[in-house]
């Protein structure tokens, strides 16, 4: 059984869930999907949701100031941190906990792998919510969970909590 599929089924168990997908926002590929797709086109939905997610990550407006460089212009504070043997990772200890080891999904420095600064996005329409939850992995990746939720039957607050838990469990087990 695929773990990605299990995570998506977990999200689909939410009341009012219509569709869910795990999407790579750099390239717009859905690594997995469950339920319906908006307009019946899963590929197009993944591409479009990925563009929205990418904009939110790449525009400085939505980025916490501490995730910026010293002058906000991307000068390298510890630019070699990602290189093998660099100082940005945690070579001590076991050395292979994912960056999102703490429940807060944040606060462990801007260099955490896969960290985007943005935690989730919510798009509200007359009939639905779309919740995009960024997934932080221990390796370098650019993933988010996309939940399409019926607005009448769904509970946005519960959905956000479930997505956060699912995103964490997908990576941490």
């Amino acid at each position: 059984m695929s773990d990605i599929d299990m995570s998506l089924y977990e999200v689909m168990a939410l009341p009012g869930a219509r569709g869910a997908a795990l999407v790579d926002w750099t390239c717009g590929l859905a690594l997995g999907s469950a339920g319906e797709s908006p307009r019946g086109q899963p590929e197009a939905a993944a591409v479009e949701a990925a563009e929205l997610a990418r904009c939110s990550v790449e525009y400085g407006t939505f980025r916490p100031p501490e995730d910026d460089g010293p002058d906000g212009a991307g000068r390298e504070p510890d630019g070699a941190g990602r290189e093998p043997g660099g100082t940005g990772r945690v070579p001590g200890g076991t050395g292979f906990e994912p960056g999102s080891g703490s429940a807060g999904l944040g606060g462990d420095g801007p260099r955490r792998t896969g960290g985007t600064g943005v935690e989730d996005l919510i798009v509200t329409t007359r009939t639905a919510y779309h919740v995009l939850r960024f997934v932080e992995t221990g390796h370098d990746s650019s993933l988010f969970l996309h939940l399409w939720l019926d607005r009448d039957a769904g509970n946005l607050a519960v959905a956000r909590i479930r997505l956060k838990e699912t995103a964490r469990r997908l990576v941490l087990g």
């Binding site: 990550v57 400085g60 460089g69 212009a73 630019g79 070699a80 801007p110």
Partner: peptide, 14 residues
């Protein structure tokens, strides 16, 4: 005045 996201910075630094 513009800023570069972390993922891009990692790439540009190399």
């Amino acid at each position: 005045g513009s800023s570069v996201p972390v993922r891009h910075r990692a790439l540009l630094d190399l």
